[in-house]
Deep mutational scan, measured.
Amino acid sequence: QRITLKDYAMRFGQTKTAKDLGVYQSAINKAIHAGRKIFLTINADGSVYAEEVKDGEVKPFPS
């Protein structure tokens, strides 16, 4: 399943989102408010992988 960072954070909370991605909650808040195009893939085992689309390139998040 693929979902935006904002939607994932709204569904699970910023604290869990940060923990799942290995970053601080403040980084999640800042990324959402900056309007960054970050998409999360939720794997069947429950693990989460995030990618950011920037300038036409897709890069892992966090980099």
Rank of each mutant, 00 (worst) to 15 (best):
Q1K: 11
Q1P: 10
Q1V: 13
Q1T: 14
Q1M: 13
Q1R: 09
R2V: 11
R2F: 08
R2A: 07
R2W: 13
R2S: 08
R2D: 03
I3P: 04
I3W: 15
I3S: 05
I3H: 06
T4P: 15
T4C: 06
T4Y: 05
T4D: 06
T4M: 06
L5M: 04
L5Q: 00
L5R: 00
L5A: 00
L5G: 00
L5T: 01
L5D: 01
K6C: 07
K6T: 09
K6R: 12
K6Q: 14
D7F: 04
D7M: 08
D7Y: 06
D7V: 06
Y8G: 00
Y8P: 00
Y8A: 03
Y8T: 00
Y8V: 00
Y8S: 00
A9C: 11
A9V: 15
A9F: 07
A9S: 08
A9N: 06
A9H: 05
M10L: 13
M10S: 13
M10E: 15
M10N: 14
M10Q: 12
M10R: 13
R11F: 10
R11W: 10
R11D: 04
R11Y: 10
R11M: 15
F12T: 02
F12K: 03
F12A: 03
F12G: 01
F12N: 07
G13Q: 01
G13P: 01
G13H: 01
G13M: 01
G13Y: 01
Q14W: 14
Q14H: 13
Q14G: 09
Q14R: 12
Q14T: 15
Q14A: 15
T15C: 13
T15V: 14
T15F: 13
T15P: 12
T15E: 15
T15K: 14
T15W: 14
K16E: 04
K16M: 04
K16C: 04
K16P: 02
K16Q: 13
K16D: 03
T17P: 02
T17V: 07
T17I: 05
T17H: 00
A18Q: 02
A18T: 03
A18N: 01
A18R: 02
K19P: 00
K19E: 12
K19W: 09
K19R: 11
K19L: 11
K19Y: 10
K19A: 13
D20P: 01
D20F: 04
D20S: 06
D20A: 09
D20Q: 09
D20R: 06
D20L: 11
L21N: 01
L21R: 00
L21S: 02
L21T: 03
L21P: 00
L21A: 02
L21E: 00
L21V: 05
G22L: 04
G22D: 05
G22T: 04
G22C: 07
G22F: 04
G22P: 00
V23L: 10
V23K: 02
V23R: 02
V23T: 14
V23W: 06
V23M: 10
V23Y: 04
Y24K: 15
Y24L: 13
Y24G: 15
Y24M: 14
Q25V: 15
Q25R: 14
Q25I: 14
Q25H: 10
Q25Y: 09
Q25S: 12
Q25N: 08
Q25D: 08
Q25A: 14
Q25C: 09
S26Y: 11
S26H: 12
S26T: 10
S26G: 12
S26V: 10
S26I: 08
S26P: 10
S26Q: 11
S26N: 09
A27N: 07
A27Y: 14
A27C: 15
A27M: 13
I28H: 00
I28F: 03
I28N: 00
I28G: 00
I28E: 00
I28C: 01
I28D: 03
I28W: 01
I28L: 08
N29A: 14
N29K: 14
N29L: 10
N29S: 14
N29E: 15
N29F: 12
N29I: 13
K30Q: 14
K30E: 15
K30G: 10
K30Y: 10
K30A: 15
K30S: 14
K30P: 04
A31E: 02
A31V: 07
A31Q: 02
A31K: 01
A31S: 05
A31M: 11
A31P: 01
A31C: 05
I32W: 02
I32V: 06
I32S: 01
I32G: 01
H33N: 12
H33G: 10
H33A: 14
H33C: 10
H33T: 14
H33I: 14
H33F: 11
H33Q: 15
H33V: 12
H33Y: 13
H33L: 15
A34D: 15
A34I: 08
A34F: 08
G35D: 13
G35Q: 12
G35S: 08
G35L: 06
G35W: 04
R36D: 08
R36I: 05
R36H: 06
R36A: 08
R36Q: 08
R36Y: 06
R36L: 12
R36P: 01
R36F: 07
K37D: 14
K37V: 12
K37C: 11
K37I: 12
K37Y: 10
K37P: 13
I38L: 02
I38S: 00
I38Q: 00
I38T: 00
I38W: 01
I38C: 01
F39N: 04
F39D: 03
F39W: 13
F39S: 04
F39L: 06
L40I: 15
L40P: 00
L40V: 15
T41Q: 08
T41F: 11
T41N: 09
T41W: 10
T41V: 15
I42F: 08
I42C: 07
I42V: 11
I42G: 02
I42S: 04
I42E: 04
I42T: 06
N43M: 14
N43P: 04
N43R: 12
N43W: 11
N43I: 08
N43S: 11
N43T: 12
A44E: 12
A44D: 12
A44S: 12
A44P: 15
A44W: 10
A44C: 09
D45V: 05
D45S: 06
D45I: 04
D45N: 09
D45F: 05
D45W: 05
G46N: 07
G46R: 05
G46C: 06
G46D: 05
G46K: 06
G46P: 00
G46S: 06
G46W: 05
S47E: 07
S47P: 03
S47K: 09
S47L: 07
S47N: 08
S47G: 08
S47D: 07
V48S: 03
V48D: 00
V48C: 06
V48W: 03
V48T: 05
V48A: 05
Y49Q: 09
Y49D: 08
Y49K: 11
Y49M: 11
Y49P: 00
Y49W: 13
Y49E: 09
A50T: 02
A50M: 03
A50S: 04
A50W: 03
A50H: 01
E51D: 07
E51C: 08
E51T: 09
E51A: 05
E51Q: 09
E51I: 10
E51W: 07
E52I: 04
E52D: 03
E52V: 04
E52H: 03
V53E: 15
V53D: 10
V53W: 14
V53M: 13
V53F: 13
V53T: 08
V53H: 13
K54G: 11
K54A: 13
K54T: 14
K54Q: 15
K54E: 13
K54L: 15
K54H: 12
K54V: 15
D55A: 10
D55T: 05
D55W: 09
D55V: 05
D55M: 08
D55L: 08
D55P: 06
G56A: 07
G56I: 04
G56M: 07
G56K: 07
G56Q: 06
G56R: 07
G56L: 06
E57I: 13
E57V: 14
E57Y: 14
E57S: 11
E57L: 13
V58H: 07
V58A: 10
V58Q: 06
V58D: 04
V58S: 10
K59L: 14
K59S: 12
K59F: 14
K59D: 04
K59C: 10
K59V: 15
K59G: 11
P60R: 11
P60E: 06
P60C: 06
P60N: 06
P60M: 06
P60Y: 05
P60G: 06
P60Q: 07
P60L: 06
P60K: 09
P60V: 08
F61I: 02
F61N: 01
F61S: 02
F61Q: 02
F61T: 02
F61L: 03
F61M: 03
F61A: 01
P62K: 05
P62R: 04
P62S: 04
P62Y: 04
P62F: 05
P62L: 06
P62H: 04
P62Q: 05
S63D: 13
S63L: 11
S63H: 11
S63R: 12
S63A: 12
S63C: 10
S63K: 10
S63Y: 12
S63W: 08
S63F: 09
